Amino acid sequence: MCSLAKQLRCALKIDQHLPLVDISAAAHRYSMYKVGPVLCCSHGIGMPSCSVLLHELIKLVRYANCVDPIFLRLGTCGGLGVPPGSVVISKQVFDGYLRNEYEMPILGECVRRPANFNPIVFNELLKCKERDDRFGICLGNTMSTNCFYEGQARIDGAVCCYSLEQKMCFLNKIHCMGIKNIEMEALQMAAITYHCGIKAGAICVTLLNRLNGDQIDITKEQLDDFQQRPLTVAIRYIKRVLNISNCADE
């Protein structure tokens, strides 16, 4: 998020002479940087930590009287049927049971909420592809899990109770559902923003094609390049929303 904030300063030509300050450092829960009208915030791994950030951000923008805020999640993921380094824009999000909803217990009862991202946002994000890009941008469904290993049909964890054949059968099944990536936060984000009427989207870069294996096989230089790609797309989108013309920042 610090890197994104620095790049946004250049892209938006805002506050470049001021020190970059983590305005939530004292809380020791996440980092937050403000660049003009944009907040850049980190979250931990998985939906529980993402939930804490989202609740506090939603309250924050309400207290600040923000009008029609847009939330974006940036990250890495495992791809399905797309080359490593591809940027996937999430459309619908499915849980580990392959349901297009987020489930949680509230007051001892099971509450389910739809997990869909805003079509205006994901269609505009898709338009942020440029001719000279060395990577593809695609729209697809996303699977979000509460587990990095068995929950994602991996066979390289400490515990695995299924065969390689069963794994591949499952991955091919969800690929046929239009699921193009697997990660651990989009489900909760889609559900809470949809429930609150907030426009939101998710931009993730694939580090591997899970149909070809579970291990990442790229260099450190490639990883750095891949991780920059969601930031690049997000900055283009932010400039479109703010109606700022292109400059030599990307």
Rank of each mutant, 00 (worst) to 15 (best):
F117I: 09
N118R: 07
R134V: 08
S144W: 04
V52E: 07
K59H: 05
F135G: 07
L164H: 13
L125F: 06
I70R: 10
K167R: 11
E109S: 15
G79R: 07
P230Q: 01
A248Y: 10
K167N: 03
A5R: 03
R73Q: 09
T142K: 01
A234V: 07
H195N: 01
K127Q: 12
G108M: 02
R29S: 09
P48E: 12
S3H: 06
G75D: 03
V121Y: 00
E150H: 03
I218S: 06
A26G: 08
M184T: 08
R9Q: 08
A191W: 08
A64W: 05
A191I: 14
E56H: 08
T206P: 01
G140K: 13
Q166S: 05
E250R: 13
G85Y: 10
E130G: 03
C41P: 05
C147S: 12
A200T: 08
S163H: 11
G75N: 04
P114A: 15
R112H: 08
P119D: 15
H28Y: 05
L18R: 10
R112F: 02
S51K: 03
E109I: 15
E103C: 12
L125A: 03
E130A: 09
T206M: 02
Q222T: 13
M168Q: 12
T206S: 09
A27C: 14
T219Q: 04
L231K: 11
Q7K: 15
R62P: 00
L207D: 01
D68I: 10
K34A: 09
G151I: 06
S3Q: 10
C77H: 05
G78T: 00
F117H: 14
S51H: 06
D214L: 00
S245I: 13
L39A: 11
R131G: 09
E165L: 04
M177G: 08
L126G: 05
G157E: 03
C2W: 12
S245N: 12
S90L: 05
L126I: 10
I58A: 06
P119C: 11
Y97H: 12
I155P: 01
L207S: 00
L57R: 10
E150W: 00
Y102T: 12
P48W: 08
P84W: 13
E221V: 14
L242I: 00
I174S: 06
